[in-house]
Design a protein around this nucleic acid. Structure first.
Length: 891
RNA sequence: AGGCACGUAGCUCAGGGGGAGAGCGCUUGCUUGACGCGCAAGAGGUCGGCGGUUCGAGACCGCCCGUGCCUACCA
């Protein structure tokens, strides 16, 4: 340390410091959680990003907030575990590698399962470090020694354990149901992986002629290609138009296959013609109708999205091409009655946007109802809190209407389902390890299920599988349930709800005490950032350009609960200015440390200063600091990150820099105890600011803290500031408030009347109030300094002064003495403007006070306050009038 | 269709019943010994509309208008 010497550059350059400190923290093991520590635990598991993915704004916000919490809790003395990791993102990752193969002119089937999987692992090795590296650039203080991956051996063991137990309990079943099928990804999808999108389509009215007579029944459909798979036509039994037709038959158009007419309440009378064609193999609700009426299922579209063998002449044709052809033929044959434009929601694959095909298929499912119940109760009873609370409703809504979860995927990258099919008795054996024999018949001719599990199945176990479960580890004991989960609402169902269910089922307790749901990051027009829109802001580029700290601060400052973040580069740039301001404040402090020695005092004590050595200004900043600490801590506790950021911004810039540092400049230039006390306070307050700011801006705060003459190895281990009531001094704040207002008034006069900043003026402060006079007298030097005065006189009353410029603060009249070349016309304008404002205020106030009801019913202190205010305004008004009269009298 | 948010300064947003706020932008002035990524001063608002509760509403309630999102089986 070199007190008194300026060792800092004029502007903050993040590139010089970020990597250095990140490396330092890691080498010192500061991110590592100690499973044998006695300190209270605080734990967060990271929402695992896709292993081969890249960091986007959502990740950046998500991880910034987690890092803020973790760094803060460490400083508060907790044993913090922030467990990082990635997930294998089955479909997405497989897609990427399949694209690569396509370019090479091959595909996974030519490669074979084993070699394909090896290939994906290789791709993971190549790209899997990218996102981890990017998280580090952001400053994330994760415990990298505990990094996990959903396909790790340990996590895979957890997956098998959960699968087998659920299967044995009958909670997992296999069966033929309508599922969502992506013809491009060639796999089943869960309901959640289908995104509905409003699309323009048509409603086709098709005539089905009666078997037993002339005429026809008209049905309306949006998907004519499924006509080939119809096995009935249904009408509502309450529909008066169709009484008596149930039991009759119609011919399926073109094919001429007879179909029964059935009655089902599901059919809506209002829609279309009220007659609905039933295709049990290609519509989830038709499927249910089919079950109720024991209708056969005819699969006419296959897994590739092409017409199946069962469609004869149409076999092998693309489903949409077939639609066109069929329409043509229907029209030709006189079956097409009319076509109406129709908007409807069409399901798209979340991963590749292909239109999803509802398909009858044999898949594995998890029964959800029984798992959901305790997960609902846990939130109802407050054992887990969702913040902001508004999301609870969404959570309950979904949980109470939950449907069974299709967990099997027809891809290769993932956890292969630990179930074996017997080729002799066709029984299923589920096991944790590869079994030798069929559990049912003892046959050794068993083959493992080829399907893999939905990635979210393994993610659902994340909060305990990462801690070593099913083994009973020290970590699991100590860190489960985790303290808080930080995530965005878009994976509330995918992930949060499922973790809740699995945690309760297998650990008997919620996986996290709090769930903090943060905003989505969007562009400045409120649109979601996406590559196709070309409106993405790359977090890494922002970090390169403005530094990780400015970037993180921006995200924190905009992280308001319940509102999306509209981000633009300008915002980040703005907060870079703040980083620079802080840098220069510290630079100023370091430049003024001559003769300073850091007191050897216990942590949390400022030093060996006699209270008497502190000036009012010192006490003021300490009191304001106390308020800032209080604000920051309570905001932190309630996840109100924007308030934390704004409180610190406001305090550091507009109180510490604008007022305190300015006011102590003369003391720093002097010698003796005055200087020492100023140094002590300025160093102390800066130290506290850096600590409070560290969770949001880790790099710059470490860099500056290391330069300051303070004790400690790293700011990461410096205790977070505590509120100390003794420093809270409301009277001092009020006194300083008066001083600051007087300075403001003088500056205003100077500015509005174009008095050059370099020109010093003479000022008289006149107040009938003895208390105010005493205060102002005490601050005479401060006022002279910041308002640039040649002289200042405080009096109880004064003679009329020709051409004086006046203003009022509280009971004090501020009089700036006329100098050369004062613009009296400007002064008149200024006073008139001021007067007009006061008169308007007074009018409103008079009106309020004159109301009987107000006097009678408002709380006395409010009435009193308003009366006082009226007095002050009246006084101010009359003084200004006199000032104005003086000028106008001269003119 | 249902549900949930949100309409406050040019822009992005805070505002937990008693004198309309911040940041950015804008205007004016400033080589003030930390900082022009700065300093100082200023302009700018029927708080979406209409009702209601209240002595008092930007805040609480209802309706309407506008915007966004989520959930949905009306083919």
């Amino acid at each position: 340390m070199n007190p008194g010497q300026d060792t800092l550059s004029k502007a903050y350059d993040p590139s010089q410091v970020e990597q250095k400190w990140y490396q330092f923290w890691q080498e010192q093991g500061l991110f590592h959680a100690d499973e044998n520590s006695e300190r209270p635990p605080f734990s967060i598991v990271i929402p695992p990003p896709n292993v081969t993915g890249l960091l986007h704004m959502g990740h950046a916000l998500n991880n910034t907030l987690q890092d803020i919490l973790c760094r803060w809790k460490r400083m508060e003395g907790y044993n913090v575990l922030w467990l990082p990791g990635t997930d294998h993102a089955g479909i997405a990752t497989q897609n990427v590698v399949e694209q690569q193969l396509l370019k090479e002119g091959t595909d996974r089937h030519q490669l074979g399962r084993e070699r394909f999987i090896q290939r994906v692992w290789r791709w993971r090795e190549e790209s899997g470090r990218t996102i981890i590296h990017q998280l580090k650039r952001l400053g994330s203080s994760c415990d990298w020694e505990r990094e996990r991956f959903t396909l790790d051996e340990g996590l895979s063991a957890a997956v098998r354990e959960v699968f087998v137990r659920l299967y044995e309990e009958g909670m997992i079943y296999r069966g033929d149901y309508i599922i969502n099928w992506c013809p491009r990804c060639q796999t089943a999808l869960s309901d959640l992986e289908v995104e509905h999108e409003e699309m323009k389509g048509n409603l086709y009215y098709v005539r089905y002629f009666w078997v037993d007579g002339p005429d026809h029944l008209t049905v309306a459909t949006t998907r004519p290609e499924t006509i080939l798979g119809d096995t009935a036509v249904a009408v509502n039994p309450k529909d008066p138009r169709y009484t008596g037709i149930v039991g009759r038959q119609v011919y399926l158009p073109l094919v001429k296959r007879p179909l029964p007419v059935v009655a089902d309440e599901y059919v809506s009378i209002e829609f279309g013609t009220g007659a609905l064609k039933i295709t049990p193999a290609h519509d989830p609700y038709d499927f249910q109708v089919g079950v109720r009426h024991q209708l056969p299922s005819l699969k006419v579209i296959d897994e590739k999205g092409q017409m199946s063998e069962a469609t004869g002449q149409y076999a092998g044709m693309d489903r949409f091409e077939c639609r066109r052809l069929l329409l043509e033929e229907l029209r030709k044959e006189g079956h097409l009655e009319k076509v109406e434009p129709h908007r409807h929601a069409v399901g798209h694959c979340q991963r590749c946007r292909t239109i999803v095909e509802p398909l009858l298929s044999k898949q594995w499912f998890v029964r959800m109802e029984e798992l959901a119940r305790p997960a609902i109760e846990a939130v109802q009873e407050g054992r887990a809190r969702i913040i902001p609370k508004g999301w609870e409703k969404t959570y309950f809504e979904w949980m109470t209407n939950i449907r069974d979860w299709c967990i099997s995927r027809q891809i290769w990258w993932g956890h292969q389902i630990p179930a074996w099919h017997c080729q002799d008795c066709s029984g299923i054996t589920a096991d944790r390890a590869t079994p030798a024999h069929c559990k049912h018949c003892g046959s050794s001719k068993i083959i493992q299920e080829t399907d893999v599990l939905d990635t979210w199945f393994s993610s659902a176990l994340w909060p305990f599988s990462t801690l070593g479960w099913p083994q009973r580890t020290r970590e699991l004991e100590l860190f489960y349930p985790t303290s808080v989960l930080v995530t965005a609402f878009d994976i509330l169902f995918f992930w949060v709800a499922r973790m809740m269910m699995m945690g309760l089922k297998f650990r008997g307790d919620v996986p996290f005490r709090d769930v903090y749901i943060h905003a989505l990051v969007k562009d400045i027009e409120g649109k979601k950032m996406s590559k196709s829109r070309g409106n993405v802001i790359d977090p890494l580029i922002m970090i390169d350009r403005y530094g990780a700290d400015a970037f993180r601060f921006t995200l924190a400052a905009f992280a308001v609960q319940g509102r999306d973040i509209l981000l633009s580069e300008e915002r980040i740039q703005g907060y870079r200015h703040f980083a620079n301001k802080l840098w220069n404040a510290a630079r100023f402090v370091l430049m003024n440390l001559e003769g300073y020695s850091h007191p050897a005092t216990p942590e949390g004590e400022m030093g060996d200063l006699d209270q008497g050595q502190l000036t009012i200004v010192d006490r003021w900043i300490l009191s304001r600091l106390t308020g800032a600490i209080r604000q920051v801590k309570s905001a932190m506790e309630e996840y109100r990150f924007n308030e934390v950021a704004n409180a610190l911004y406001q305090f550091i810039w507009h109180e510490y820099c604008d007022w305190y540092l300015e006011l102590i400049k003369p003391r720093l230039r002097s010698a003796g105890p005055d200087r020492l006390s100023a140094q002590r306070v300025m160093v102390w307050v800066l130290d506290m600011c850096l600590r409070m700011l560290h969770p949001i801006m880790p790099f710059i705060t470490e860099e500056l803290w290391q330069q300051l003459p303070v004790e400690g190895e790293t700011i990461m281990r410096a205790p977070f500031p505590q509120v100390r009531e003794v420093w809270f001094a409301p009277q001092t704040e009020e006194e300083m408030g008066l001083t600051m207002e007087v300075i403001g008034e003088i500056r205003n006069i100077r500015s509005e009347l174009n008095i050059a900043p370099s020109k010093k003026v003479e000022v008289i402060l006149s107040s009938p109030d003895e208390g105010e006079r005493a205060m102002l007298q005490a601050h005479a030097e401060d006022i002279s300094l910041l308002a640039s005065l040649a002289s200042l006189t405080v009096v109880s009353q004064h003679e009329k002064i020709l051409g004086a410029l006046t203003s009022m603060v509280s009971k004090t009249e501020v009089i700036v003495l006329p100098g050369e070349g004062i613009d009296m016309e400007g002064e008149r304008k200024r006073l008139r403007k001021e007067l007009a404002k006061i008169e308007e205020d007074l009018l409103l106030l008079e009106e309020k006070l004159s109301r009987e009801d107000f006097r009678a019913k408002a709380p006395p202190e409010i009435v009193e306050k308003n009366l006082e205010r009226r007095e002050a305004l009246r006084e101010k008004e009359s003084r200004l009038r006199r000032g104005l009269a003086r000028i106008e009298g001269e003119a």
